[in-house]
Design a protein around this nucleic acid. Structure first.
Length: 780
RNA sequence: GCGCGAUUAGCUCAGUCGGUUAGAGCGUACGGUUCACAUCCGUAAGGCCGCAGGUUCGAUUCCUGCAUCGCGCACCA
């Protein structure tokens, strides 16, 4: 045996073969024994983990490699002979993917507006399909023990059916509404966002004081004066008390504006008087609503000026600001300019400034969903680790706001709502005509020129008024029987579907209705919520992810899963650390400090990569990684390999033929014998406890230290003497202890470094299972 | 503005009920081995555990304040 072992461990040669062996033998696919209750006596409760689905269009980055935490848990539980399901999948990642794709379009000198939505959707789909397999191969390379027979994708019909059914249920429960408020719109990404996708940054700007006739106001956005519908002061403000109800005049246009009073106005700030621009500011919108002011829109979804004096028409808001300022100055209406540092909202994706726009969006009334989700964590039905994230979660949940789930992009499941054009003639459509022109306008204005079929075929988007009547089925209009109906063009926020991942995946095993099509179809009314997988594996055991998506994903999952299934989605939410570079900086392409996990696997082996990741990473913090970390762990793999090489050759030379039994009774003879067995027992105890407590880094460090310094440096050195100097009984006994400690060490190490440990285990004469992956976890 | 973290060796980080001599990886210096180990082993240097108070027999650990950095939340035009 030892003659076959090279002096150095070569991961490349063994890793792929071993993975194929595991997968081929079905170790990743748990057995559900029919007739036995999952919690029954004969079978332990299954251990279930869902892999947070990576973006389907993207290769893995170092962050994904940290899912090794889940693999460690799964492998450990599998060795404790529990049925284990570790379920893989990928996410269509709506805005992220479309953003990447649009960049490619731009490189070709094109934009999304050159295509009708069906064509664009197909193009993105093709792009994603080309890349979708990459992540799968990579996850196998990392050694993740995933059940590939249950692989899922957020856009597969069996998943979408359930997602749409949830939407229908929400609607039936009165929890879906279309708003008429201000939404966070990114004119660069071309879509509205929920408040979570808005980041706030401090920005140095100017506060401009403008002469409004009877009163002077202060604003940072002079270009929006044309959208003013009033001027507001605080009712308690003595300076302006006598002006309330009087008239102010908008500079440049001289439009009359009523001076109103509202508590929201801060007397201390600026001039203590505020111009009210309901269509382009959320606070103004609220004030406007109270005072029944009709919003005037002057910025469109491209960020360009509309409904303004001709000279500003079509300018971007930023350009318009300079132009308007110049004219205000010339007219003597700009009385003062002060520097101002304030916070502005920017798009988390493209970092451009968010434009608050008044436009209808689909919202979920979230309070009824948040309440049980809050309780679940408060009552510790769900534990969030580390604990401090629990505080964050509770804080956010207690102040949660309704969730905008509609996005004006094509890449994603289209919201299953249909409008009758005859009943909603005010619907605005934009489409590409058969001649290839881009047409935009109210349906009632353009229907004479273009017939319905042409509009439907070239449709890019539609904007329905807030109160538009819609149906949840693609059927002729219930009212007027018209067949001129169009589906909503908004798509779901990606998190709306990934927020349902724990049950959509487990329900998907029922298959899907063959008539079901992805983009437009009826919802199935009576979905089967009783699949074997769902009954057996739900709720799942542990969810592990990075803390940056605690609200985006974890919180939404808890809410949606409890709402739909009545049960919590997982018992533990574990937040793993963030991978940063050697200097503590976030890894990003633009910084050029990205370490590709697959390159590291090729260079140092998957085991070294995995061990390096968990070795120095406390949960919820940052782990700084440089190549030296992987190098250090490759040295460790080599150490393991050579220790095994020594033990096996020593055993062989000292009566291997006698060592075939696994039941050899260990009889420690020397002090060293006693010590190593005692320390092994202690290590087993500690590591088991660490794993129970999610102290992965502690466990990793302990097994590292035990193997290298206690076993190799001390015991093996001692064993050499015992073999050289002892009698035949001691020789044999020493070899037995060496083999035993090696075997148990391989077990302890296996969750962390699965490949090399399995490889060595297969060579052992004292195996106690056909493969290490299913060998019994050491007990004390 | 409110809240949450962090501050420990030259660097990057651990340190789970308060308890003897505060640890690891990498780096540095010296010695050894080359018949398990593209290496490995041994030894060493290096720490006011951010600062100031408090509780305690005893504080890196618990409490208060401060400083610096990071993050989350927040409609100040």
């Amino acid at each position: 045996m030892s003659q076959e072992m090279d002096k150095i461990y070569n991961p490349k040669e063994s890793e792929e073969k071993i993975y194929q062996m595991w997968e081929g033998k079905g170790y990743f696919t748990p057995k559900i024994e029919k007739g036995k209750k999952p919690f029954g006596k004969d079978q332990g409760k299954p251990f279930t983990v869902l892999l947070p689905p990576p973006n389907a269009n993207d290769p893995l980055h170092m962050g994904h490699a940290l899912f090794v935490v889940e693999d460690i848990l799964c492998r450990w539980h599998r060795m404790k002979s529990e049925p284990v399901l570790f379920l893989p999948g990928t996410d269509h990642a709506g805005i992220e993917t479309q953003y990447v794709f649009e960049k490619r379009l731009k490189e070709q000198g094109k934009s999304r507006f050159d295509f009708d939505r069906d064509t664009l959707y197909r193009m993105i789909n093709d792009f994603v399909e080309q890349n979708r397999g990459v992540a799968k191969i990579q996850m196998k390379k990392l050694g993740f023990g995933l059940d590939w027979t249950r692989e899922r994708y957020t856009l597969e019909p069996a998943i979408l059916e359930t997602v749409f059914a949830t939407f229908r249920k929400l609607h039936e429960d009165g929890l879906i509404y279309r708003n008429d408020g201000i939404v966070n719109y990114c004119t660069y990404c071309g879509t509205a966002f929920s408040e979570l996708e808005v980041e706030h940054i401090e920005k140095d700007d100017f506060l401009y004081f403008l002469d409004y006739g009877a009163i002077s106001i202060a604003t940072t956005r002079p270009e929006t004066i044309f959208a003013d519908t009033a001027v507001a002061v605080n009712p308690k403000d003595k300076r302006y008390k006598n002006l309330i109800g009087k008239t102010a005049f908008m500079p440049i246009t001289n439009k009359e504006l009523l001076i109103i009073a509202d508590d929201l106005v801060d007397m201390e700030f600026g001039a203590g008087a505020l111009k009210i621009t309901p269509a382009h500011d959320s606070a103004d919108f609220e004030i406007g609503k109270k005072h029944e002011l009709e919003p005037v829109k002057i910025i469109d979804t491209n960020g360009k000026m509309i409904n303004v004096p001709e000279k500003y028409l079509g300018l971007y808001a930023k350009q318009a600001r300079q132009a308007v300022l110049g004219d205000l100055k010339a007219a003597g209406k700009l009385t003062k300019t002060e520097p101002l540092r304030h916070s502005v909202g920017i798009c988390y994706r493209c970092k451009n400034i968010i434009e608050p726009l008044a436009m209808p969006q689909w919202f979920i009334k979230i309070a009824p969903l948040a309440k049980p989700a809050l309780e679940a964590v408060k009552k510790e039905k769900i534990k969030i680790i580390p604990k401090r994230f629990e505080k964050l979660y509770l804080q956010w949940m207690e102040n949660i706001r309704d969730w905008n789930i509609s996005r004006q992009i094509v890449w994603g499941p289209r919201i299953p709502a249909w409008y009758c054009l005859s009943c909603n003639p005010d619907i605005v459509v934009s489409f590409v005509s058969e001649k290839g022109e881009k047409v935009f306008g109210k349906y009632q204005d353009i229907k004479k020129q273009y017939d319905f079929a042409e509009i439907k075929k070239g449709l890019q988007s539609l904007t329905a008024p807030k109160d538009a009547v819609f149906f949840l089925d693609e059927t002729p209009c219930e009212k007027c029987k018209s067949t001129d109906i169009l589906q909503e063009t908004d798509t779901f926020d990606t998190w709306f579907s990934s927020g349902q991942w724990p049950f959509t995946t487990l329900l998907a095993s029922r298959g899907s209705n063959s008539k079901f099509k992805m983009q437009s179809s009826k919802l199935r009314n009576n979905l089967d919520y009783t699949t074997e997988d769902f009954e057996y594996f739900y709720p799942t055991s542990v969810l592990d992810t990075m803390w940056d998506i605690l609200f985006f994903w974890v919180a939404r999952m808890i809410m949606l899963c409890i709402y739909v299934t009545g049960k919590i989605p997982f018992e533990v939410a574990h937040m793993h650390c963030r991978v940063v570079d050697k200097k503590g900086q976030k890894m990003s392409k633009s910084r050029g400090n990205v370490i590709n996990p697959i390159e590291m696997v090729d260079k140092y082996g998957a085991d070294a990569l995995r061990m390096a990741l968990v070795f120095s990473s406390a949960p919820g913090s940052d782990v700084c990684l440089g190549e030296e970390n992987f190098l250090a762990m490759r040295k460790f793999t080599n150490k393991i390999w050579n220790a095994a090489r020594f033990v096996l050759s020593a055993a062989e030379q000292n009566g291997n033929h006698k060592l075939q039994t696994i039941n050899y009774k260990l009889a420690p003879q020397t002090e060293a014998d006693k010590q190593i067995l005692k320390t092994l027992d202690e290590t087993v105890k500690e590591i088991t406890k660490d794993l129970e407590n999610f102290y992965f880094h502690e466990a990793a460090q302990k097994i590292y230290h035990f193997f290298w310094h206690t076993f190799c440096d001390i015991y093996i050195e001692q064993a050499k003497k015992q073999i050289a100097e002892g009698d035949s009984r001691q020789k044999e006994n020493t070899c037995q202890i060496l083999l035993y400690v090696l075997r148990e060490s391989m077990k302890l190490l296996h969750p962390f470094m699965p490949f090399i440990t399995e490889q060595i285990y297969q060579m052992l004469p004292n195996k106690d299972a056909e493969a290490l992956i299913i060998a019994p976890w050491p007990r004390v």
